[in-house]
């Protein structure tokens, strides 16, 4: 059904009702429900009916990347079972999206799982890809009158190859002033269990990232991955730096006061 997606996208844009699955990710589900609510708000506003398959849990990234291949593979099987039937799966997390798209095919040694992966993986979209490539929108009708800097995150950049999609979306947000982040493409030092296994190096990396963020004078640090934001944000609050972190979805869901649409719930 891949060929139909562009048409499918236009149909949605024209106001049609096609259901799309949201893979919220275990981190967002548990710790950052506001991001999930923002994705739902945003997609509804754009005429997309979102489904939340309740059996979903976790993509398996933490287990696989820490060296627990069996557990990681089990969760990958579960993901594919849950999301197999959908036309599109939207993921508001660069690293979980990259896990599914980059690592699942490597886990699949042919067989039934291989087929299921081949059928599911091409329909998995990062939120910004879904908005721009499938729905064909860059102006999502958001209003956010703040100075914002954007951290592209490693897996969004080098795993999913999101390129400038998030920036293009932010540039269309009314009232938003986007300021460039020096050393943007450098890792913040999170890396999942890396932050705990190599705390000193991780903290040194984050220290440099935070200094770059503060140099921009931005009020808000935005990214498309809450794991990285949890890391940088945890350092920002520890330092009482006064800079907020917000997921891209939360900014895109925000609307002007008095607008009929519900404002994206922030954390």
């Amino acid at each position: 059904m891949m060929y139909g997606l562009t048409i499918f996208g236009l149909t949605i844009y024209a106001g049609g009702h096609v259901r799309v699955a949201l893979f919220i990710t275990c981190v967002n589900d548990t710790l950052f429900p506001g991001t999930g609510k923002a994705v739902v708000t945003l997609l509804r506003r754009l005429g997309v009916d979102v489904d939340f398959p309740e059996a979903q849990t976790c993509c398996g990234q933490m287990h696989l990347n820490t060296g627990y291949r069996e557990e990681g593979a089990r969760l990958a099987h579960h993901f594919v079972d849950v999301f197999r039937g959908y036309d599109a799966v939207v993921v508001p997390s660069g690293s979980c999206g990259a896990m599914v798209r980059e690592q699942y095919p490597k886990l699949a040694d042919g067989g039934a799982f291989g087929e299921a992966v081949a059928a599911t993986v091409p329909r998995v979209y990062d939120l910004s890809e879904f908005l721009i490539d499938v729905l064909g929108v860059t102006d999502v009708g958001a209003y956010f009158p703040h100075r914002v800097t954007y951290h592209p995150t490693c897996h969004s950049l080098r795993g999913l190859h999101l390129g400038d999609r998030p920036r293009r979306l932010l540039e269309q947000v009314k009232g938003l002033e986007l300021v460039p982040l020096p050393g943007a493409e450098e890792c913040c030092g999170f890396g999942g269990t890396f932050a705990v296994k190599n705390p000193d190096i991780s903290a040194a990396m984050c220290g440099d990232k935070v200094r770059n963020v503060l140099d921009t004078g931005a009020e808000v640090l935005c990214a498309a991955d809450n794991s990285c934001l949890m890391h940088i944000g945890g350092t920002l609050t520890r330092q009482k730096a006064g800079v907020r972190v917000m997921h891209l979805a939360e900014i895109l869901a925000s609307t002007a006061p008095g607008d009929t649409h519900e404002r994206g719930d922030s954390r």
């Binding site: 919220i24 967002n28 589900d29 548990t30 710790l31 950052f32 429900p33 506001g34 999930g36 609510k37 739902v40 708000t41 509804r44 979102v50 939340f52 309740e54 932050a195 705990v196 296994k197 705390p199 000193d200 991780s202 903290a203 984050c206 220290g207 949890m230 890391h231 944000g233 945890g234 350092t235 609050t237 520890r238 519900e262 954390r267």
Partner: peptide, 28 residues
């Protein structure tokens, strides 16, 4: 795990997870 909290705050745990919000509000 102290390696994390030596230099970083932990995120606040929300009262309600996303999935519970979804179920309670029927997807908002």
């Amino acid at each position: 795990l102290g390696g994390w909290t030596d230099t970083r705050d932990l995120p606040d745990i929300p009262k309600e997870s996303f999935r519970d919000w979804w179920n309670r509000t029927d997807g908002g």
